[in-house]
Design a protein around this nucleic acid. Structure first.
Lengths: 326, 326
DNA sequence: ATCCTCCCGGAAAGCGATTTCCAAGTATGC
DNA sequence: GCATACTTGGAAATCGCTTTCCGGGAGGAT
């Protein structure tokens, strides 16, 4: 491998000068030498050794992204935005998938700490349970080493946060559905202690004073939606699934049971996953700018301001054919 | 930050011993010292500096993965498999997205070279055009530095390859559709020079001797499928889209034009994207083990054998409601 | 003309690990 | 009981780059 020293020798300059030319520095180098160094580097095919650079500089160019599941289009969209934004800042993204295992999540943060990653971004909502404490400890340790942390979802860890207005979005959706004449609701509410799910559920119910929707808990994924939909009470005219992927499961369950959407029951989700837009009937949902959220998280984590800052993002209600007025 | 030297001092041993205990080595360390070192590391909260380790060892623990678009569920599934497999081998994955820009692809390989990534995995088929030469040059350079390269798709670069039997899969599908009585076919063929698309198209047509299906080219994505479907000849009874995402677009186009699937026309795709399984009508397709392909690529790239090895993966025809016998 | 800055090139000291040698202690073979 | 081989611990040389510090030359002010 060609080293910087080889380049310097070939160009007849010192190591210091070569470094300043090739790898950026506050200091200027005269045009003559600069050209010589650049030519030498090109001739020799020099390639910076990032590991050495990271060691010497004390900071790397890696951003860690921790998601539950890349196959879930929600996380894929966030990851896409994050990768793009990181690239714009000359950073690269390391992705870890936890598949909702808190142990893996912690292990991943720890590994990113060892990498001296510039920042770690946690996407996907956390359970409100003891494992969160262990994660917090690990994050503190990471921060103590100079790393930044950004969280996408609710403001839970005292870190930079891209906060999603889950309650407000769900409330706006509830109001829209109420205005269309619905009174008998069911909520496919996801896991009871999953914060995002709980917030959406609360926001929805809170916007329907005097009504008491049926609440069905279950996993936060497609099969969870399918299962939960099976136990909807007769008489319910409108079902809210706390995310789109669950809504898809519910749709399948209704289809299997011969219940027509929206003729027999209306259905709404949350997130507005692009891949799902061609579903029939098209899903009424709350649109979230997922890629932008991923990008925003990267920018937050890379910004210089001291204190943890919070960016709020709002959802936009999108009414499509999966709901019908009563 | 706590360094290995701090740990060694705290434990009253040499740097060498501490290194051998904490970061793995061929050499043994006595039980007594080993315990002392481990305790010291725990007390001080020692964390390996991966950059220093990479520099000293001359090889890192990063695997680079280059995909076109993480939002495309095809790539998301591959990435998921790759991340999991890498994790099993104690490696981490750095993802880059090119959005089909050859320049970005090359830039990414170059950046992975600078990282001294252990391997780079290229997913997503390439165009058969001049930019491939530039990529090949960059890859050769990367390999010259000791890195491994694996490609998912067709065997094009002379690297380790997870080769998809595109022709055979498409041919099997064609035979199945033919056996169901279809004779008038159209192929939504994607970009003419995109190798994967071309192979699937050829395989399909080749299995229908005596027939000459209508070929419609267009982009390899959802909108490409939509657009191509608009120019299907009347009289066609069965449409093959060279991937599932395009098939979804075609489905939408047919719906918008009042053409019913499968009553008026049958439709088939390729890939069997999990996220799309709840589509109505369910898509007939050729199933590919995407996550396994991603994992396989990682293992190939990490294996020690010298020469480039090729793993073949076959697709399995899955008939669902989007096709109907004639 | 003198002095003070400012600018730019180079020497050398790290950054935090790994690993090759050495040396000493212990086990084995006869 | 002694020579030989194996272990195991430590000192020190690297790995490739950044950056501080020093020194010399050019330009401006007095």
């Amino acid at each position: 491998m060609v080293t910087l020293e080889d380049v310097a020798r070939h160009a007849g300059v010192s190591l210091a000068t070569a470094s300043r030319v090739l790898n950026g520095s506050a200091r200027q180098v005269g045009a003559g030498l600069r050209a010589k160094v650049e030519q030498a580097a090109a001739e020799l095919g020099y390639r910076t050794n990032v590991a050495a650079q990271t060691l010497a500089r004390g900071a790397g160019n890696v951003i860690g992204l921790v998601v539950h599941d890349l196959v879930d289009p929600y996380f894929a969209a966030i990851a896409d935005g994050a990768v793009k934004a990181a690239d714009d800042h000359g950073m690269v993204v390391m992705v870890g998938t936890t598949h909702r295992d808190p142990v893996r999540e912690i292990a991943y943060v720890s590994s990113l700490g060892a990498q001296r990653a510039r920042a770690v971004i946690l996407a996907g909502s956390r359970m409100d349970d003891p494992s969160a404490a262990a994660l917090r400890t690990e994050l503190d340790r990471y921060r103590a080493g100079g790393g930044r942390v950004a969280v996408i979802g609710q403001d839970l860890l005292g870190a930079d946060t891209v906060a999603v207005a889950n309650r407000a979005g769900a409330a706006a959706l509830a109001e829209a559905l109420h205005a269309m004449g619905h009174r008998e609701f069911a909520v496919l509410a996801g896991p009871p202690r999953l914060i995002t799910a709980a917030e959406r559920c609360e926001g929805f119910i809170g916007a329907l004073p005097g009504l008491s929707p049926q609440i069905v808990h279950g996993p936060f994924d497609r099969d969870g939606g399918y299962g939960a939909a099976l136990s909807i009470d007769p008489g319910v005219t409108c079902v809210f699934a706390v995310n789109d992927v669950m809504a898809v499961g519910a749709l399948a369950a209704f289809r299997d049971r011969g219940i027509r959407v929206p003729d027999d029951v209306s259905l709404a989700g949350f997130d507005d996953i692009a891949t799902l837009r061609d579903l029939v009937p098209a899903l009424t949902t709350v649109r979230l700018p997922l890629a932008a959220m991923g990008a925003r998280a990267v920018e937050l984590a890379l910004s210089e301001d001291a204190g943890p800052s919070v960016v709020h993002v709002e959802g936009e209600v999108v009414i499509r054919e999966s709901v019908r007025a009563r």
